[in-house]
Each structure stands twice: as structure tokens, then as C-alpha cells.
Simulated scan of single mutants.
Amino acid sequence: MPMTTNSLDVVPLAEPGALSADEGAALYRLMTWLSPAFPVGAFSYSSGIEWAVEAGDIVDAATLRDWLSSMLTDGSGFCDGVFLAHVHRAASVGDVAALRDIAELAAAFVPSKERQLETSSQGKAFIEIARSAWNHNGLERLIAACEGALVYPVAVGLVSAAHRIPLSATMHGFFHAVTSNWISAGARLVPLGQTDSQRVLAALEPVVVATGTRALRASLDELGGATFRADIASLRHETQYTRLFRS
């Protein structure tokens, strides 16, 4: 009699294009590090959005989307992406001099005291947690090379490079995390419902992808922004009478 095979005993073939063990581990780490649950304190900062809501610049989902689109393409979003890309590349090849210069420039490239607190506090927390839970032999050397405060995009670039996580994936994950946090702040301040928040995130998808791609190709000479209202918001927030957020 022919033998029968229980379908439950058959080991399925790997799907075409399935992730290797290293690729799966890299994705796991990247999703963890850039998750809203990763404890860098991002939920307590609004990047000036709180003042923009009080001033009437942001009043609904549409105006929040427009504000964030500008921040991504012409403001701190794009600049942070450029810093991340250059730090990742310098760290990947062990260029100590470049790391030091880029980290110093990134720390100086913020328009207000509160934005400095925001990006440096998150950067410090990101590094400390990575050291504790995902330590890597080469990470300490990269941190030491920066010789000072590590702002958030620099910290993400350093850690992802040390763990050999591809730059393009890191970049787009970083932008998704930053945009999601901005939307979360806006949703609490306007306020917006969960569905409207997701609509804003969906509407910004092409902006996030395009900005990430542009940041990957940009030189440090292309750094710069034109979101003066957002810069003013971060300055005015320092003296705002009633505040829920630290920036």
C-alpha cells in the first residue's frame, strides 16, 4: 500500500525572499528601538506643536498634516535625517574624525533651548538603553569618538551602524517614529481621534518616504531649513503659560 503523509508533518519550504536570521534580528531590533514603547521619553515632547495649537496654527487634522509636512521636508525632519545618514556611514567605516565633526554639528543645529533638551535627552536615553540591553563591542568606541552630547539622530545612527542594520531601513524607520510621535502630540493637543490620527499618518506616507530618500542622498552642505514658524513655536513654547509638553 502506498504510504500516506500527514500534512501536519510536512515541513514547508521557506517563502521566496524570506528573511535570513541576521535580517530578522536586524528588523526586530529596529522595530523595537523605534517603537513608541521604547523608553526615550519622546511622548513628553511636542517639538513646538503645543504652541502652534495654542496660537491657532494647528486646529484640525488638515492643518496638523500641513504643519508636519513642512517640518519633514523643510525643517528639523530632513536635517535630522541627513545627520543620521552621515553618522551611520562614518560609523560603518570607523571614520573617527567625521563622527566627531558630524556629532558636534548636529548638537549645534537646533533653534532653541527646549529643542536642544528634547533631542539631547532622547539621544542620551537611546544610547543608555542600547548599552544595557543590546550592547555591542564596537559601540563604546563609536560613542567615545563623538566627544560630547549625542543628539537623537546621531544616537540612532551610531547604534544601528554598530549592529550593521542597513542605513535605508534605519532612515525610514526613524522618520516613521518621529512622525508618529508628532502626530501623537497633535492628537492630544487639538485634540484628534484615533481615526483622524491614522489618516494624517497615511497622508504623510509619501512625504516621509520622499524625505527619507532625499536625506539619504544629501550632503552636509545641503543642510538647512525654512520652517521659521516652527522655529518660532519652539522658542515661544519656553514661556508658554500652560504646558503639557516639555518642548
Rank of each mutant, 00 (worst) to 15 (best):
P2H: 12
T4I: 08
L8S: 09
L8I: 05
L8T: 05
V10N: 02
V11E: 07
A14G: 05
P16K: 13
A18E: 11
E23K: 09
E23L: 08
L27V: 12
L27M: 14
Y28M: 11
L30Q: 01
T32A: 10
T32Y: 04
L34D: 00
S35G: 13
F43G: 00
Y45W: 14
E50C: 02
E54G: 06
D57N: 12
I58L: 03
A61W: 00
R65V: 07
W67Q: 09
W67R: 12
T73H: 07
T73Q: 09
F78D: 03
D80P: 03
G81M: 05
A91N: 06
S92F: 05
S92Q: 02
V93M: 13
D95C: 07
A98Q: 13
I102Y: 04
E104V: 08
F109R: 03
S112P: 02
T119A: 08
Q122D: 02
A125T: 05
A125M: 10
I129H: 11
R131Y: 03
N135T: 08
E140L: 10
C146P: 06
C146F: 06
Y152K: 09
G157I: 08
H163R: 15
H172L: 15
F174C: 11
F175P: 00
H176G: 11
V178C: 11
T179Q: 09
A185V: 06
G186D: 00
A187M: 11
R188E: 03
R188G: 11
V190N: 01
L192H: 02
L201E: 00
A202R: 13
A210I: 09
T211Y: 07
T213C: 08
L216Q: 10
R217V: 07
S219G: 12
T227C: 08
T227D: 09
D231V: 13
A233Y: 06
E238C: 06
Q240V: 12
T242I: 15
T242N: 11
R243V: 15
F245L: 11
R246E: 08
